[in-house]
């Protein structure tokens, strides 16, 4: 048996989350945005797993499975939207898709 400092797991998760956030806010290509979102979701799942091993309990892993399902569904719908948008506007630039401008 061995030990890992709890906060190191959380540190890893937070760093991944922050990187994903930077990706979401900087990229203009909508595929990259979706990928960065996946990174963020994954980071959240990591927190659950870390928590699960901290208390030696399976609940956190169940939650990770839920996040996994959510991510799968979200990616399916999101990618379908990207395809549809590309068909209509011939671009993947999200700044072009600004019809909601006030």
């Amino acid at each position: 048996m061995y030990t890992i400092p709890f906060e190191h797991g959380l540190l890893l998760a937070s760093a991944l989350f922050a990187l994903g956030l930077v990706g979401v806010t900087t990229r203009r290509n909508i595929v990259f945005v979706l990928m960065s979102l996946e990174i963020m979701l994954n980071a959240t799942g990591l927190v659950f797993v870390v928590g699960s091993s901290r208390w030696g309990h399976a609940d956190g892993q169940v939650m990770f499975l839920m996040i996994l399902t959510l991510a799968a569904a979200e990616v399916a719908v999101g990618l379908a939207l990207i395809i549809q948008l590309y068909r209509r506007f011939k671009t993947v630039d999200i700044d072009v898709l600004s019809q909601l401008k006030g």
Partner: peptide, 15 residues
């Protein structure tokens, strides 16, 4: 986020 972390160690046991 980091400043709010608890300092703790995980006894890794397989779940």
């Amino acid at each position: 986020l980091l400043s709010s972390f608890p300092v703790n160690s995980i006894e890794v046991a397989e779940v």
